[in-house]
Design a protein around this nucleic acid. Sequence first.
DNA 1: GTCTATACGGCGATAGAC
DNA 2: GTCTATCGCCGTATAGAC
Lengths: 209, 209
Amino acid sequence: MHPTRERILDAAEELFAHHGFEGVSIRQIMTKAEADVSLAYYHFESKKDLFDQVMLRRVEYLNEIRLKALEEVEKRHPDDEPTVEEIIGAFTRPLLSLLAEDHDQWSHYYQLIAQINNSPDRGGELMSRYFDPLVSRFIDALKRALPDSDPEDLYWSYHFLSGALTLTFAETGRIDNLSGGACKSTDIASVIDRMPAFLAAGFRQLCKH
Amino acid sequence: MHPTRERILDAAEELFAHHGFEGVSIRQIMTKAEADVSLAYYHFESKKDLFDQVMLRRVEYLNEIRLKALEEVEKRHPDDEPTVEEIIGAFTRPLLSLLAEDHDQWSHYYQLIAQINNSPDRGGELMSRYFDPLVSRFIDALKRALPDSDPEDLYWSYHFLSGALTLTFAETGRIDNLSGGACKSTDIASVIDRMPAFLAAGFRQLCKH
DNA sequence: GTCTATACGGCGATAGAC
DNA sequence: GTCTATCGCCGTATAGAC
């Protein structure tokens, strides 16, 4: 069995992902973690601190592998610019591959990100804090791949990308209903190639000077 | 002053949109509505019923105007098929135009939709219930505009559309941060033309034969 | 339709023994 | 590190007078 602190984080991650911060009590989390309520306050300062630690546990690693993916794409083009599709692939593929390969470990965290990205309350603040340094690096690469593009077009294109990516993270089962079972929310392998293709075409259309 | 029932719905809509179902208490809603707590239970059965009534109040009208927009596009093409961009415009423009023209009335409802669409808990069920009849109608039109396309490609394309659209509804302020103020979440006029252009290019790329 | 008053349980958080 | 016990507050919901 994992150490208590890890078990609490696992339980909190899953419950926050499914019901939101306010929709879950410390008591529910600790029941799922099979530990006493008071231990939550030994290992974490407060419910809010617990939430922050859930967020922080995985975010650095995710940003690292995506930065590495971008650097590798750039290394493959010492004398010219990578294509839009390569850059977007470096942004989305590492995330989606993790999810496809180890769904149990990553799915709840991704669902949490999906909720936060679409939360009018503090979504903008949290997403910017955790991801914008990396995103700016990608936007710069896209600027070079799409010379003379209007920056506004580029930012709105990224915004569309972000919405498409995080709705995929949410795995709500809606596409299962809509398609009559032909597509499955959890079938991430089906999205890995489709997403960069779809989004790159959008970028090229909107950002052609 | 509006009748009490309307004031409760207005207050609930705004607070649910910002903090989620569990993040808001009946007490907070009734304080905002300037009415006594017990009146919530005179006008509605329960907190959950209040939430359902908030959802139902506007959904039919939205689906109506979008169906009308699609029918008009089709009328303009008695002898051929409308373009992908026309169809997607009929899906997104009526919504975005309402939001741009009467932001105060619609913004909170749209933020609620954004949250629900990305909620792993009951998002798939609710979105399918309220919107899939209309969406299926649009998917059929897209099938005719993109003959021989793989249905899976079409459904995933719609999924990307849905994520991009609802993140726009969320108005989280993130694009304000990321762009250093060059773009604003609430500047919907900037998105009305960009969104169909971006998304139609994605559909055409992914669903070509 | 609107108010006062209240029931009862779960909430986040803490003190202190071991 | 882990447990028992407890505090005071706020949650949804209802009864009943006017």
